[in-house]
């Protein structure tokens, strides 16, 4: 956040001159641009055909059809470079790219692509499980556990089918069934909770939990100090003012940690609250208001 201003008038004059020169750039500039464009494409397609992950895979696959396809792509590419007409060259470059990709897909063993399908499926299955857990809790809370049983029944067939397909290694087909079960669970949760507002109160099971919460709050304010004041701390006067509060806060935090070490959580919480308050004051002393 350095100071920024609009360009000065002299800068504007220079821009104006530049604009003027650019504005008068005649049509022959487009020829140079065409040549540049083709040279760039030549380089890019060359990289794809010779050095890319796809090219390397084809080479290493030992798959004859794939290797032949890549050789064909290279032939098209080399011929394209010699073409006189720009448009024809473009067309041939595109053909070379398409051929290389055909080669890559010939060289792809099904295990390669299954890997990702499998990972995506696992994620989806975890989401389904999480939704089903939530569904069970919601239905218990609403005293309609029979609705949960009904959902489980509805998706049972899909889950069985998915498991069977997975056992055969057909992850993509299994995904269809897991997806269907997932949508059913989602819709049921949506119907049950629609229009509700849930309150998560600030209640702690044990003083230790509250201490942890306070520690987090203290960390948060320390990070805010960095985020909000990084730039302002370059000013010596502000830095001094801020550091007075930060030093107090550090001291209090250390004390609080000692209290917590002795299992005196009530005192630890109280001391940490004071420490956080000092951080709030530090931030405010630099001229930024944050609620405390």
């Amino acid at each position: 956040m350095r100071s920024k201003s609009r360009p000065s008038s002299s800068a504007k004059a220079l821009i104006f001159i530049s604009l003027f020169i650019a504005g008068t750039a005649p049509a022959w500039a487009s020829e140079t641009s065409d040549a540049n464009h083709l040279a760039n494409r030549d380089k890019l397609v060359h990289t794809l055909l010779y050095d890319s992950s796809a090219a390397r895979k084809v080479e290493l696959s030992g798959n004859e059809a794939a290797i032949a396809k890549r050789a064909e792509a290279i032939k098209v590419f080399e011929a394209a470079s010699k073409h006189e007409y720009a448009e024809l060259r473009e067309e041939q470059y595109n053909r070379a790219v398409a051929l290389l990709y055909e080669a890559a897909s010939l060289a792809t063993s099904s295990a390669d692509s299954d890997d990702k399908i499998r990972r995506d499926l696992d994620n989806r299955q975890q989401s389904l499980d999480a939704l089903l857990d939530a569904h069970e809790r919601i239905m218990e809370e609403k005293h309609s556990s029979d609705l949960h049983a009904a959902l489980l029944e509805e998706i049972a067939a899909d889950r069985l089918a998915a498991d069977a397909l997975l056992a055969e290694g057909k992850a993509a087909a299994a995904r269809v069934h897991v997806d269907r079960a997932y949508v059913a669970a989602k819709l049921s949760v949506e119907r049950a909770r629609k229009g509700e507002t849930l309150l998560r109160e600030l209640k702690f099971d044990t003083p230790e939990d509250e201490y942890k919460y306070e520690l987090d709050r203290n960390d948060t304010h320390r990070m805010l100090l960095k985020v909000l004041l990084d730039d302002k701390m370059k000013n010596e006067r502000i830095r001094e003012g801020v550091n007075v509060h930060v030093a107090k806060s550090d001291e209090l935090r250390e004390k609080a940690i000692l209290f917590a070490g002795n299992k005196e959580f009530e005192s630890a919480i109280e001391t940490l609250e004071k420490s956080t308050k000092e951080l709030v004051m530090a931030i405010r002393s630099a001229g930024i208001y944050i609620p405390g």
Binding site: I15, S18, L19, I21, A22, G23, A25, A27, A29, S30, T32, S33, D34, H37
Partner: peptide, 14 residues
């Protein structure tokens, strides 16, 4: 292409 080259020229200068 012409528009593009003009945009490029403008860009470099402005």
């Amino acid at each position: 292409r012409f528009l593009k080259s003009k945009r490029l020229a403008l860009l470099v200068l402005v």
